[in-house]
Design a binder for these strands. Structure first.
Lengths: 156, 156
DNA sequence: CAGTATCCCAAGCGATACTG
DNA sequence: CAGTATCGCTTGGGATACTG
């Protein structure tokens, strides 16, 4: 099929890429998906400067991916933690697809760093392409993309 | 569970994030997944400067995601096109997960920009989390992550 | 068509120090 | 603990012009 230019401002991939942000944001998200939720802990783990971390957290909050919660351990001073919103949680397939790609192609070791499991049965979870007819598609070549109904790029 | 710091240099998400690169690289990949393969076409579609596009293409080739092919339409002068390697094609789930996230949360219109279909049956394809027991998991909260066997961060 | 070379500017970064 | 403020410095970017 022939492709007219997709409107960048309306393209889902573009927009998601903007929300994900840069490398630092992705690392922040990894930490939070892993349950690391406090400023200094995140900073220690990923080794980013404080100002950049603050900016990334704010950015992720602005996009509705994270929200900040204050909590108080009894007799302790208040703490803050960053948690995923529902929108943030729905980035899980993106993160996991990245994980699986990295484990397949990029890591030197055989074992994955992180394994995702199903709470209900404990079995390992993978991201899978499935069509509406129920076929599982392992080979990307068995897919094709067509334009949907969204507006195209206006200009020439 | 308690999390020890994952070694950033061994983390699959980190490494994939590096390969994906920045916004421009992702847009380049979108174009190439959409079958737009020539330098000037890509440049026209995504509106990046020539030097940056050249650098991103080189980078994606260095990472083994793309390769460059010369071809010759009969009686025409040689042309070049960028194609996905097998490694590049296996980024498809990542791209599609991004697309689905964007379509759900970020686009203003109801219709998706791009629809992915199964060649064999034409049915629409979605990325799905499936566990080894065959359960389909729609809700990210029904998942949990544990450390795999990969090495942890060495320092402090 | 498919790039490379140059230039100049702006944004981004880490380091450091400071605040509630 | 959880940030903000300030500061140089480097990197990266678009624009433009040039080459095979």
């Amino acid at each position: 099929m022939e492709w007219t230019a997709v409107d960048n401002d309306a393209c889902a991939v573009t927009l998601t890429s903007d929300v994900l942000g840069d490398r630092w944001s992705v690392l922040v998200l990894r930490e939070i998906f892993n349950g690391v939720r406090r400023f200094d802990d995140i900073q220690g783990h990923i080794g980013v400067s404080r100002s950049v971390l603050a900016q990334r957290l704010r950015r992720l909050m602005d996009h509705g991916i994270l929200h900040k919660r204050e909590y108080q351990a009894p007799g302790d001073r208040p703490r803050y933690e960053y948690r995923l919103t529902e929108m943030g949680r729905s980035l899980q397939p993106v993160m996991q697809a990245m994980m699986e790609f990295g484990d397949r192609w990029l890591t030197s070791h055989d074992d994955p760093t992180v394994i995702v499991r199903h709470k209900e049965c404990g079995a390992r979870v993978k991201v899978t392409s499935v069509c509406a007819e129920g076929h599982v598609i392992d080979e990307p070549r068995d897919l094709y993309a067509v334009l949907g109904g969204a507006p195209l790029k206006s200009a020439s």
